[in-house]
Design a protein around this nucleic acid. Structure first.
Lengths: 146, 146
DNA sequence: AGCTCATATTGTAATAAGTACAAAAATGAA
DNA sequence: TTCATTTTTGTACTTATTACAATATGAGCT
């Protein structure tokens, strides 16, 4: 992924494109695995030896607050992040932890929002639709008692 | 809430109705505040002086796994619990933490499920639809810069 | 270039939620 | 009652995240 694309993306959200921020953003753009803050830190630390965990946490919170990325409350303990901000749902496997994207037709997404309306007067900043269960592979393993 | 109702409810899920389990379940049935494990512990500890935090955590996990209650991954840090297992969505205010229930028409809920299908072959055990933002009260406070 | 001030990053220490585990207690069956 | 199983308890630990103060960086001005 080119330097300039990431830089322009951040600038477009009014975010100053520092080395660290670009690295985090680029990681999320090129890895569709919905990583946690720590996974991102571990991947980037070898490349940016001075990188601090705190910076990764701060950067992710900031990017999410600006709407440049999406944060996912999926597995209780830790937060996952998604560089794709187009409206979509997620499935998380409670056995292997894999997270799958589910892209509904845009009109269906809007229909859901219209029929499950947030409280009157509230300002909605995020919406999340998620499923938990066993993925196909783990369902099979489970049947075979592994 | 009568002892017998709670007891029968747990028995219906094949859960042995111990004193501790009944207390936790009864708390969730009579408090629609979507409490965390610690809030439940703090409320029950004075009534059951020997109660242990671990028991509350274990009980909640078990009740959720059996489908007797619903667990809500809403605010990153901690898990919230809901004694109402009928399908409904939630709104959480990121400022004051209040959680509101949103009850859509049942047919709309099913329509959403049908149009946002989980991965093929997966076994879905939980579904969660949630909004985050500022509640009406906090929206007003925010405008007035409080 | 050098200076200055605001912003960003770093590292350490602290917090907070939840889990592991082994001992003790309670329960139920024989 | 006795024995085995289940449940509860308490302590210690792990893990994710935040607080905070010190340091570094960078953009604009002279």
């Amino acid at each position: 992924m080119s330097y300039k694309i990431v830089q322009d993306y951040l600038s477009g959200y009014g975010i100053r494109p520092s080395l660290q921020r670009m690295a985090v953003m680029e990681y999320l753009m090129t890895h569709r695995t919905h990583p946690t803050a720590d996974e991102i830190y571990s991947a980037l630390a070898p490349v940016i030896p001075t990188l601090s965990r705190t910076t990764v946490y701060n950067t992710l919170s900031m990017l999410a607050a600006c709407g440049a990325i999406q944060s996912l409350d999926l597995d209780g303990g830790r937060m996952h992040y998604d560089g794709d901000t187009t409206p979509h749902a997620h499935f998380i496997c409670t056995r292997c932890g894999t997270i799958h994207d589910i892209f509904p037709e845009t009109q269906e997404w809007h229909r859901t929002l219209a029929h499950v309306p947030p409280p009157a007067g509230a300002t909605v900043t995020e919406m999340q639709l998620s499923y938990k269960g066993l993925c196909a592979k783990c369902t099979t393993l489970n049947i075979n008692n592994n």
